[in-house]
Simulated assay, not measured.
Amino acid sequence: MSRVAKQPISLPKGVELTTAGGNISVKGPKGTLSVHQLPGVTVAIDGGVANITLGEGVDDKFGGTARALIANMVTGVSQGYERKLELVGVGYRAAMQGKALSLSLGFSHPVVFDAPEGISIETPTQTEVLIKGTDKQVVGQVAAKIRGFRPPEPYKGKGVRYAGEKITLKEAKKA
């Protein structure tokens, strides 16, 4: 079994993990998440700790993947995930219009992005966007989609970037 799969998953107070009908469900204060159980992987729960065990002849990679998915779900329903984006450029602005995010990114029209179910988007300032949710994959996908509207360009660094992202700028042509 892989080193990742051998690590136990501690369940914080208020978090329940159940396995039924080929699905693994995690319920906590921030919501409920579930994932399809991988073949040959079983989850044993004893005293607030979940352990992964593999059946005979099952590939090691399934154990590590299952452990990572369950640990991400436990963190999501107990603490949640968030991604912060920064808008860099003259006139680049973000504002919430109800549940939709309106972005002014230098196009002739504003870009309107509707948040999917289970995701909340906030704009603390006009140049910051905060994406929050319980599912790590969905939060990352939404952040990548918003960044994709205007990725940072390599000459001036203008665009939508992740908070703390370093953009390597290219040198301009020399005459």
Rank of each mutant, 00 (worst) to 15 (best):
M1I: 01
A5K: 04
A5I: 02
A5F: 04
L11M: 13
P12T: 08
G14D: 15
T18R: 15
T19G: 10
G21R: 12
I24V: 13
S25N: 14
K30M: 10
G31L: 08
T32D: 02
T32K: 07
V35E: 13
V35M: 13
H36A: 13
H36C: 02
G40W: 10
V41R: 03
V41F: 04
A44P: 03
A44H: 12
A44Q: 11
A44W: 02
A44V: 14
I45L: 15
I45H: 00
G47P: 00
G47Y: 05
V49A: 13
N51T: 07
I52N: 03
G55Q: 04
E56L: 14
G57P: 01
V58G: 05
D59A: 11
D60S: 10
K61A: 11
K61M: 06
F62K: 06
F62L: 12
G63E: 02
T65M: 10
A66Q: 15
A66D: 00
R67W: 05
R67T: 10
L69G: 01
L69F: 02
A71Q: 12
A71D: 14
N72S: 12
M73S: 07
V74N: 12
T75K: 13
G76V: 08
S78C: 08
G80I: 09
Y81I: 06
R83I: 11
E86S: 06
L87C: 06
V88G: 03
V88F: 06
Y92A: 00
Y92P: 09
R93S: 00
A94E: 01
A95R: 08
M96V: 04
Q97L: 04
K99T: 09
K99V: 02
A100T: 02
A100L: 01
S104V: 14
L105C: 09
S108H: 05
S108K: 09
V112W: 00
F113H: 07
D114F: 03
D114G: 00
D114W: 01
A115E: 10
E117W: 07
I121P: 02
T123D: 00
P124R: 03
Q126P: 10
E128K: 07
V129A: 01
V129P: 01
I131W: 01
K132N: 12
G133H: 15
G133A: 11
D135N: 13
D135A: 08
D135T: 00
V138P: 00
V139G: 10
A143M: 06
A143V: 06
K145W: 12
K145P: 01
I146A: 05
R147P: 00
G148P: 03
G148D: 14
F149H: 15
P151H: 11
P151A: 12
P152V: 11
P154C: 00
K158D: 11
R161P: 06
R161F: 04
A163N: 07
K166F: 07
L169Y: 09
K170A: 11
K170C: 05
E171I: 14
K173A: 15
K174R: 10
